[in-house]
Design a protein around this nucleic acid. Structure first.
Lengths: 346, 346
DNA sequence: CGTTTTCATGAAAGCGCTTGCATGATATTT
DNA sequence: AAATATCATGCAAGCGCTTTCATGAAAACG
């Protein structure tokens, strides 16, 4: 007679205990891998659990144990591949642990973000992963004060001294700009990201530093303020190309805007890279698939997710604040959207 | 003196009750919008809660109330924009309710999927959203038996009679194929999706039906079995173009594979759409951004997510099984990867 | 004005589990 | 062999909340 593990009703540790002939406390110990259980007892209990199809009630465990075995992930939105890559990294890392992931979308609303953080930190999750936080100052202090574990992802904090993983934005922008300069470009347009984000600032600074290093004047009219969305890339390109002395290259602060630039340039009947070179940032998958494939600065997004998850898990385990900020290297990926400027004499 | 809502330690309903001068049961009633609370009492309690920065402990509520206010989302992976779009829809809909979202990735492992479902259904979540389920037969019966709320997304069930939202795959494939036929194509290659998924079968059938309607023989060598990933699109295109009498158009069962086809065709020095027309399926964002923009069958992914979430919420609310399967319409999006076949005499 | 109904509120019993403490049962020591 | 240390296990007190039932007060009734 085969005993089916039919989970018809709820099986509690009591039933398992009764079946296995031990007290429910022992069952609990087995669940929690407590050392103080005789191996053979453990085996017996485990088998019984299996046979009865027992699944521990997470809520109860959380309530009694004081932790939820769940971490919260707060993302601004889900519209872009950017976030997707990061989530993938986090998910990969989490799959090794027994932590669950609760996903929250702030829809880029600062108020909502702070609110979520407050609620989440209130016992719903054991730790928090904050992607591209909008107004972290509002709550980081509280979080730190309460020693609530969290890791910031892709946030160039205002020198806050808290766990974060980011990328070398400055370096990436510097390298890309320098690359354009070495190709012979001297008028290089720049489309910024959302300027309330630290990474946007860093990229802009990297761009400016490269110009300075190479003694190229930094003309303010060549910098257009965008917000990381495609339409702004389009608008930025139009604005830059409408200048009486337009740039020969445009460096967009992310790939999505770079695609907007591509569109704009094409719509104006100009060719890439012959007339205008274009560089993006992020290296999201489709940047390689558009035409022409975009030269871009790779941000190790998936890796950032992984590292952040690791950091958080470590903090959770050791119950102490981990090393502070980790910066993962960016890398220039040269593809077909860049070339030396055409002889402008023509 | 302003009382700061410092959430220094945990505030329980007891403290709120004491502060507000009521019993903790009343506080609970306020939290749960129980009718039996005098309006003025409710106000007083609400204010106290605010002042103290009270946040209800979800775990405790779940344990006591028997529901988690959380729904589980099971996705095969996070690598593609396909899933991202669906999640966006779900997220949007959920943001109106007070349900949380726990995300699980099965990494396309059937065993893991069944396992997750078993665990989740065990009180961790109130309902389940299953995207592109792999081997649902394994657990759907159990779920149905136990009346556990769930909705399948993009699953062409084996006539299971359960809540699901999908798209008119057959119709979409039929329309796209017919469109190619009307352009003058007679040899149309087809790259299938993962054949263990119902939608793949439906698309294949739609393709075949269109051929039949137009009295075009259905040559088996023109159908290549893929798995929805880009490399298979590439491989499929190579295989089809290597035929001694190659097709003049290739219809890939999703956009990602269509991009593989694009690559393959380009690498062979042929041009799209001049030499080969290419059609995809899904209309993921980047299908419009690659070169050339791909003609594709739009699947309303975001909407599918939204509708599925709505269905689940309804089931949860009414505590009864909702209408069964909902099919959202697909639509042919004509872009630049298709044209009439070149005069083959040349 | 006394009685019945209505209604806001309080008291208390859990929800399923973790964990510190107590208790026998072995194992170790001299 | 007696005394002590070690270990497996049981007991019971919560974790913070929901919810049923009981209760006293106010409202409605004759």
């Amino acid at each position: 007679m085969k005993t089916t593990p039919k989970t018809s009703a709820k099986v509690t540790i009591f039933e398992v205990a009764a079946e296995a002939g031990v007290s429910f406390a022992t069952v609990s110990r087995v669940i929690n891998n407590d050392v103080h259980v005789k191996p053979e007892t453990r085996q017996r209990v485990l088998k019984t659990m299996q046979r009865l199809g027992f699944v521990a009630n997470r809520q109860a465990r959380s309530l009694a144990g004081g932790k939820s075995n769940t971490i919260g992930l707060l993302v601004p939105d889900l519209g872009t591949a950017y976030i997707g890559e990061i989530i993938r990294g986090i998910d990969t890392e989490l799959s090794w642990s027994d932590l669950d992931l609760i996903l929250y979308t702030t829809h880029r609303t600062a108020a909502k973000e702070a609110n979520y953080v407050a609620n989440l930190a209130h016992g719903m999750v054991d730790g928090l992963l904050l992607v591209l936080p909008r107004n972290p100052v509002d709550y980081i202090e509280t979080l730190t004060l309460r020693k609530f574990p969290f890791v910031l992802i892709d946030h160039q904090g205002t020198a806050e001294n808290c766990p974060a993983v980011g990328a070398t934005n400055w370096q990436g922008a510097y390298t890309a700009t320098e690359y354009l300069i070495q190709l012979g470009h001297e008028r290089i347009g720049f489309i910024t990201g959302s300027m309330d984000l630290g990474c946007s600032e860093d990229r802009l600074k990297g761009y400016r530093s490269a110009l300075r290093t190479h003694h190229i004047p930094d003309k303010p009219e060549l910098v257009y303020e965008g917000d990381f969305f495609q339409p702004d890339g389009y608008a930025g390109a139009c604005a830059l190309l409408d200048l009486e002395n337009p740039p020969t290259a445009i460096f967009a602060s992310n790939d999505v805007m770079a695609m907007g630039v591509l569109d704009a340039v094409r719509n104006r009947g100009q060719r890439i890279p012959d007339d205008i070179s274009v560089v993006g940032f992020d290296n999201i998958p489709q940047s390689a698939m558009v035409y022409p494939p975009i030269t871009t600065v790779q941000q190790p997004l998936e890796q950032m997710g992984r590292v952040a998850a690791q950091m958080l898990i470590n903090i959770l385990k050791k119950n102490e604040k981990e090393s502070n900020r980790i910066e993962l290297p960016t890398e220039l990926i040269v593809r077909s959207s860049t070339s030396s400027p055409r002889d402008r004499a023509g």
